[in-house]
Design a protein around this nucleic acid. Structure first.
Lengths: 259, 259
DNA sequence: CGTTATCTGTCCATATAGTGGATCCATGAC
DNA sequence: GTCATGGATCCACTATATGGACAGATAACG
């Protein structure tokens, strides 16, 4: 009933299950029933009932405190099995470590999923002031944050326009500055430099830089990125950071692609 | 409708989704609609409809050939996010490599899930004759295969009897020899040796040995195991193999437990 | 310490969303 | 050619999920 904007024929509950799992994953410290009801647009009883079903399957669990819901062991198990066809996270581990160590900033691996990027892994850097905008499970529309910029920039022009169109609303939620015009300007920078720079567009003073990772088909499927405070991204430091990102992303693309 | 033996109140489709995902995961090279209908007990149209729903969410995909279904990228992403609360697979990587290298056999990581073990990771050994009974995603009832034996052996006696009872039927499907009596005998060996030995109970001539890994609560949650042909598990070689398994499993338990 | 606010969990009448038998089509074996 | 197998689709039927309403639990407040 409810929205119905895009209830693909077939199974309503399947869609809702996916919606809930994504919403739970996006919550860093567990999700509440009421919170999930709001973010998914479902009613509380429905959220509750589906969560009970999911927890009976082990796909979600309640945190020890009893209140909040988290992704469960069964989901981990299924993901681990799927992982042997998607080895990116394992392959990216050393790259993240090197990036965090050589730059001192926090390093991230993100994956493209349709119109969004999802943060898959985080490695803390040594520098004591850290941005906590990005975390595992967070989804951002393409075009938002350096990872979303660099992936967008490597897509065919026609796709870029379509995606800018489709994500206009979602981008707005992450800051008024994310207009199509402003994004296009940042994409030009990517085409010049090879890497993307996010000059504090989401949170003022919180910068990011990213390089794209290409899968075996040559599509920009993942991104490596680093984040930190503005003063750590001075004009004389950026080229070096960009080179470090590009080095690691090339290495990863090679590992995924032609072996 | 159909069986209804254990349709927990609430959501039928959630259960069916989980059923299908597990069934797909258990198929090494992708699953067919008809095959899934048989193994899950659902009708073909139902399987087909739910698969379409799942694939719209990216939770499953069709293989390039177009025929078979596999776990999809979204499931991998969710699993990767869950993984930061369940770091076992990452932690176990080096142990599997060492086991495969020092013993020459194939090494496996399995996780306990309720009444079953699930194979999570596999590392090939150098020895050219390899058993392919076990693979990522395969679920076996507790008590079957060395991993299922060693986990069962470390559970409280009351649980052991309950589980032996509950899995009697499922065990039978993996070989007539898996009687409660026979399992109890093998469990005694585990309590003496610390590791489990499966003397070709599933496939004649295919042996296995396993050691348990304990989580932070002290429960036997995972197992490391190796498999190979009978002649590689001679009486004089077994103590050394057992020691190697125990060394690695202790190391892993420590990594999961303390601090 | 009663009042208000918030959130979890449960009930149940309702109708919507899912079901599966039947059918058609594509492919391949013989 | 026939037959067998499996994928895909249709649609009448009703079993299943839905969500408004309510009860219980916990915390915040004046």
């Amino acid at each position: 009933m409810t929205d119905g904007i895009e209830t693909a024929s077939g199974t309503q509950v399947v869609h809702r299950v996916a919606l809930l799992l994504r919403a739970i994953a996006a919550q860093e410290h567990g999700a509440t029933v009421a919170g999930l009801a709001v973010t998914t647009g479902l009613t509380r009883p429905t959220v509750h009932r589906i969560l009970l079903g999911l927890s009976a399957e082990g796909l979600v669990t309640r945190a020890v405190d009893g209140g909040t819901w988290q992704l469960g062991p069964e989901l981990y198990v299924l993901g681990a099995i799927a992982a042997h066809r998607y080895p990116i996270r394992e392959l990216a581990g050393p790259s993240l470590t090197r990036l965090a160590e050589t730059t001192g900033e926090s390093a991230f691996l993100s994956a493209r999923r349709d119109l969004e990027t999802v943060c898959l892994a985080r490695r803390e850097g040594a520098f004591p002031i850290r941005s906590h905008v990005l975390h595992e499970g967070l989804r951002l529309p393409l075009g938002v944050a350096s990872a979303g910029l660099v992936i967008l920039a490597h897509l065919p022009d026609a796709d870029v326009e379509r995606i800018l169109d489709a994500t206009a609303g979602a981008r707005g939620a992450w800051g008024r500055q994310h207009t199509a015009k402003q994004i296009r300007r940042l994409l030009e920078d990517v085409r010049r430099d090879g890497f993307a720079t996010n000059p504090g567009m989401i949170v003022e003073g919180s910068w990011g830089m990213a390089a794209a990772v290409f899968d075996a088909t040559g599509a920009p499927a993942y991104a490596l990125s680093i984040t930190g405070i503005e003063t750590r991204f001075s004009a004389d430091r950026r080229p070096g950071l960009g080179r470090a990102l590009l080095t690691e992303s090339h290495r990863l693309s090679r590992a995924l692609g032609g072996e």
